[in-house]
Write a protein that binds this DNA or RNA. Structure first.
Lengths: 211, 211
DNA sequence: CGAAAAATCACCTTTTTAGGTGATTTTTCA
DNA sequence: TGAAAAATCACCTAAAAAGGTGATTTTTCG
């Protein structure tokens, strides 16, 4: 039994050529192609494909909105994003929503074909630039703390601060006076170039600064 | 000029066969192979390869410890992990330390060769099961915000709060009065079960709550 | 040893938040 | 249409945080 596929892609030419390419492979079969995701839920519910190829930028409704809907029907349905966009928002919105792959159109449809294979084998096909961005979210510069020249004590204070603790509580945790704790915080704020604790927490957690 | 490579791999047979395979390609050249990372810093500093192939489980010292050292010398040196391990700890420790790729030995050395190509083209080669695990870290239940029952406006306020903004500034951004903004914050704190802005920021960013 | 860095503490003022109470207007949706 | 939910605003008090200044003790390290 061939692997079944549904395509959401508003460019008709592209959609048709994908369909031909995939159907001619012998291993895959396109069940249907749609130019928008307005009725994605019912369409997927009826067709129950193994894989969905999903464009993001389509009329009226973003393809991303269809991801949770499809995954709700059956999480085993693989969703491969196929789009021209490579901005962080779209990438991470898609992945967070549950996409299993993200392939850029600027690469050839042939690579999309490879991606179908990979996703069915339990992989997560990503175009190289996308994979790079994904990995980058994990990378933590080992020098980030050094760059800010925080002292060991300041790091201790900051660790407690980013848990949302009050100055009073941090002071008691470290067995120092309230004023000492404040003194450290003042220095921390200066070194991190922020003006208050909230900014410091946001900066540390957003930039994934290791403490 | 061929792409230069250094291999850290304690299995001599494997190391030698990799070396032969890579050298015979014409495009790549193995500068050296080592059976441990005890002197990785100096070795890399002297050899300055384009790519490092790094095993994790090696005598005395884990290959992961070498990652920050190498990246400190030159972040442009690509590091591809080549190991049998696929447990989450090793994977994410490696990626967080700065690895650019993670290839399992159970796949053929041929795939490692492909990975070298990919990493030099700015990609992030990952074995399928690894890629799957990496993507899984992004998947979030779409109901996280719903769980807290935040209203659309409250989400807007919270989005600005987690940037570290002051109440006054948030109010001006949303064109509402200071008291209105405070009113929203009070409700947000109640719903998130926190007592202040700092805790709210910490909770949202730590728990990766989608807004 | 001795200087530099780090850690400690105190006191002061001003600003910002938190928490409480209550009320009006707007929007949403059954 | 009409009730419920959401959004808006005001006023008050107390607590917490920020910012400044200055000083002493302890640690670190050449």
């Amino acid at each position: 039994m061939p692997i079944s596929i549904v395509i959401f892609e508003d460019n008709e030419n592209l959609r048709d050529s994908l369909e031909v390419l995939i159907n001619n492979s012998g291993e895959y079969q396109v069940l249907a192609g749609f130019s928008n995701v307005l009725n994605a839920k019912e369409q997927i519910e009826n067709l129950r494909p193994d894989v969905v190829i999903l464009d993001i930028d389509m009329p009226v409704k973003s393809g991303i909105t269809a991801i949770p809907q499809i995954k709700e029907i059956d999480p085993k349905i693989s969703i491969v994003i196929y789009t021209q966009f490579e901005d962080d928002d779209k990438i991470f919105d898609s992945l967070c929503a549950g996409a299993d792959g993200y392939i850029l159109k600027k690469t050839s449809p042939i690579l999309l074909f490879q991606a179908l294979k990979e996703v069915r084998e339990g992989g997560a096909p990503l175009s190289p630039t996308i994979a790079k961005k994904v990995l980058a979210t994990f990378h933590k510069s080992p020098n980030q703390v050094l760059r800010y020249n925080l002292t060991p004590r300041e790091i201790e204070v900051l660790k407690l601060l980013i848990k949302g603790y009050s100055i009073k509580y941090i002071a008691s945790e470290l067995f120092v006076s309230y004023d000492t704790c404040k003194s450290h915080l003042k220095n921390i704020y200066t070194k991190l170039h922020v003006n208050c604790g909230k900014e410091a927490i946001a900066k540390v957690l957003e930039e994934r600064i290791i403490l």
